[in-house]
């Protein structure tokens, strides 16, 4: 959108090998502020590896990750949450026995203080802080349309609602950049359309940047402002959906040889 601005997320020259396999090889791309950016590629292209390097789960052999101009290379996942990186999970990874509100409140952990004694003694400053953060968590749940489920255990929710809890939780870290790991995995066409709508609404309302790793091409083509295509750990294309769709390299690598 605005090429002059510092990218919200910049990946520079990442390389990572597992044994002899080059999972990532000189991977570079940038997510512009306010953009919905998709990272796609056939199975084994290195999408998930790249995602995990950005999240701090894997450590790259070489290269750098920058978040809004700050170098965050090699930081632990729990440090990144405080630096404005939020992520959702493909398998949701929610606490099934806990309530929706409890799950979303977890994301306020890095923004709040207070250990066992303060919490146990219900220290007034901690309680008021908690009330303030609960209000924000409720607000985020309302925004995602799950406020009627606040006190319901997550285990009993439909898949679609649980996905919303997952996204609510990621948003509750107040991210500048939101990473979505295959948000449409296991969804039918109707649900996928719902997720697409949700992603746009989130971006527009919160003015954040979104990077999604996705298999579902209808979702990607529908929502992404820009697409980076990986194949065998290398970037083979980077452009708008229209450019990527017509790129012969992408067609060959990803969409198939003919047509």
């Amino acid at each position: 959108m605005s090429p002059a601005a510092t990218p919200a997320l910049q990946v520079d020259d990442l390389a990572l090998s597992f044994g002899g396999v080059k999972a990532l090889d000189k991977v570079s791309f940038g997510v512009a502020p306010g953009n919905i950016h998709a990272l796609i590629g056939p199975n084994g292209a290195g999408k998930s590896t790249c995602f995990n390097v950005i999240c701090g789960v894997y450590r790259a052999d070489r290269g750098a990750v920058r978040l809004g101009g700050n170098d965050v290379t090699g930081m632990h996942p729990h440090q990144l949450a405080g630096k404005g990186l939020g992520r959702s999970f493909q398998n949701l990874a929610l606490s099934m026995h806990s309530t929706v509100l409890d799950n979303v409140m977890l994301a306020r952990h890095c923004r709040t203080r207070g250990g066992f004694m303060a919490a146990g003694a219900r220290w007034p400053s901690m309680m008021s802080e908690q009330a303030k953060h609960t209000a924000r968590a409720v607000e985020i749940c309302e925004f995602l349309g799950i406020e009627r489920l606040l006190h319901a255990p997550v285990g009993g929710l439909s898949y679609g609602d649980a996905k919303r809890v997952d996204i609510a939780r990621a948003l509750a870290t107040e991210p500048e950049v939101l990473l979505l790991d295959e948000p449409a995995a296991g969804m039918n066409a109707g649900e996928t359309a719902e997720v697409a709508e949700l992603i746009k609404v989130v971006r527009d309302a919160l003015e954040i940047s979104i990077l999604l790793v996705e298999h579902d091409m209808t979702l990607v083509m529908g929502v992404a402002d820009r697409i980076t295509v990986l194949d065998f750990g290398k970037v083979v294309a980077d452009g708008t959906p229209a450019e990527v769709r017509n790129d012969p390299e992408v067609i060959r690598a990803y969409l198939g040889e003919q047509e």
Binding site: H78, A81, M96, H97, A107, H109, C110, R169
Partner: peptide, 12 residues
Amino acid sequence: DNESAASALGVN
């Protein structure tokens, strides 16, 4: 319930 999720949400 899930250490990697806890970690991603800012829990050390």
